[in-house]
Nucleic acid binder design. Structure first.
Lengths: 218, 218, 218, 218
DNA sequence: TATGAATGAGTATTCATTCAT
DNA sequence: TATGAATGAATACTCATTCAT
């Protein structure tokens, strides 16, 4: 496929897109190093090899840049969870794989966790990213978690039940990551990943057992 | 008891203390609305009806004000957990009471949750409150959680086991609160408090059952 | 003499005077350590064991304190020069003794030099010490230098000539002290005191020789 | 030469340079009026017709501005001394010319003297311009004085001797300028320039005579 | 597209001084 | 006399954003 065709189909990496990408790369590093409030547009521009003013040709504000960086992170998260689920042999395995992939993505990439936690401050800060952007990001997060609920349904859980399980897993992971990330878990001399593994295994087993009790043939 | 006696005993609310208190009240509101980094001394002073310079007669820095506000919150949390535990009839009840008191304190006082979450940004932002203040706040948090571990031990858990349970409960509560607070739980149409109750009940029952298996006479 | 009599004669060290003295002692240290601009009233008050506001019962302003500290220094300078001159056997000796005493006072007490140099910035700074105070300090400085001119006259110089010599000596001393004090003389690897000694000796010898030529009998 | 050519050769006064120059002009006036510590960035900006923030596009800090203003002054001083020395017919003339040019530069430009005196406060206030800037300025001063030593060597003085002479002249000039500048010389009804002339002439003659005694053929 | 220059609002903190108590 | 509290002005410096070029 020629570039011309690709362009007509809107799938090209235009120079404009590439520049945006480079700016986002730079922004990611700065946000990760300094936090959302700590990162200055000047620093991002510098890291990208631009003047601050130049960034305004590519993004409408500092918040827009942040939103895009965060979105990329959530997309990667979704991909990782999706990839982990694919090869699993049965529902229970899929459940565990999805949950642990979610957890491990952030355990392995603590800087993405920093990014993501901003989502949890948006509620307090009225002048955050703006409602629209916030909802879009929410959707990406929900999508990344969906495989957990799907796996539960596959095992036999009702939709409602599956959702609650998903929320529980999300909450437990978020809490453990919070503790681990801020070194507060060290304060209790515990290993976050072991705790998460145990939690997920327990929940998966419980669910499976209950389903077998309900429908022994399954 | 007359004011004079109170004074002699050093328990008076001196005018100085009262002013400090009023400033802290104002600061609390501003910190809650803006976060530590977002809140400006000027805003706090304004809210307290003071000039910025005047605050320095009462607190040595913005960070000192923040630390004090946060500490008050953690102390209240500890008191609430302590009060909840006291009347409980047995270990299992005490465990549930402590865990739910912890959770409900923050569910009922979402503004304290905002405050508390600063603790969870210390890892990212090392130049926050300073090591000393940070450790003091950590200690207050740990103290508030301690009754959970104590109750587990009372039920028969080993010390190590009790600690892990405490961490699990803490993590689950933190995660659920995070979700609820940022309205991300609504996205899953679930009730945080129900989820927490179920989680705590399960864990308490599990522990009790296991203990009975080990030592049927207990 | 009883205190009552002393008091009637106005020579007592009243409590008020003593307190002033203690404040001045503290101020001296702070001014010496921080410079006039660098020293804050708060620091002086702290060093004196007072509240800033309290100092205003003893001095009308920060500048008033500074002026008084500086005056004390100039008085000490005058005393030292006077004491050095007294035992000298003849005019030439007196000349050398006075000049070197002046120089050495500041060489030995570099902090007094810092104090004194303010005099040399007052001209630039309109809101310095105020004209009146400035003139009083000038008078003390002039008095301290007078013995140099007197010695020259004693040797036989005309009044005009003696004054010029005094100015020359003052200037040379000031210049060397400036260089030495700011370590700029080290940049030239020279010893300020040797240079001063040589300069004074030369000038004294010159004068004496010329006087002998004029009036061989003297 | 057209502007285009000048531009190609990089010798143009770009608009940027011109603005810098205007800011420096404004700064010079403010520094002269207020001193380094006394001068505020706000005042400089105001005098230059700018917002304080705008200055940071041209200079990295207040100290940087000061350093540049002072450096310009020292460069001018060096040029004046160099120009004065050039046409002199012999060593003794060169010595006198250099010394008097140094003196007269400051006598004619008392504002540069104010600037230069900062160099003499570095010893007391170590956190002034920073070591690097300080050393650079020192070098410019030393360069401006060098012709004095060179002339002495030309007359026949040993290197060591020449250096001491240079220091002496520097010190005497500095002292006289100090006195004249702060009007303390008027207090003695003397003329600074006459005193300096006499001092320099005496020293030059002394040196020349001594050299002739040592080596009559010279 | 990109820049350099500029702005105006903002930051925490310090200062000398005042004044009611 | 002395204090504690307060003020208002000042400090250097940073920020996101704008705009003419």
């Amino acid at each position: 496929m020629t570039a011309a065709i690709a362009h007509r189909q809107g799938r090209t990496r235009t120079p404009k897109d590439m520049k945006r990408g480079l700016i986002l790369d730079a922004a990611r590093q700065v946000f990760l190093a300094e936090g959302l409030d700590g990162a200055s547009l000047r620093a991002i521009a510098l890291a990208a090899g631009y003047t601050p003013a130049a960034l305004y040709f590519h993004f409408e504000s500092k918040e827009a840049i942040y939103a895009e960086v965060l979105q990329e992170s959530l997309v990667k998260l979704g991909q990782r969870v999706g990839a982990a689920v694919a090869p699993a042999s049965c529902g229970a395995e899929r459940l565990k794989a999805a949950a642990m992939a979610f957890f491990e993505f952030y355990a392995d990439n603590p800087r993405d966790l920093d990014l993501g936690f901003y989502l949890f401050r948006g509620g307090m800060r009225p002048k955050g990213l703006g409602r629209e952007r916030d909802e879009a990001l929410n959707a990406w997060l929900a999508a990344a978690l969906q495989p957990i609920a799907s796996a539960a349904i596959e095992i036999g859980a009702a939709e409602e039940e599956a959702k609650l399980l998903m929320v529980d897993v999300f909450a437990h992971a978020a809490g453990l990551l919070l503790l681990a990330h801020t070194r507060r878990i060290r304060m209790f001399e515990a290993s976050a990943i072991e705790l998460m593994t145990r939690y997920v295994t327990d929940r998966a087993n419980q669910l499976q057992k209950r389903m077998r009790d309900v429908d022994p043939e399954a």
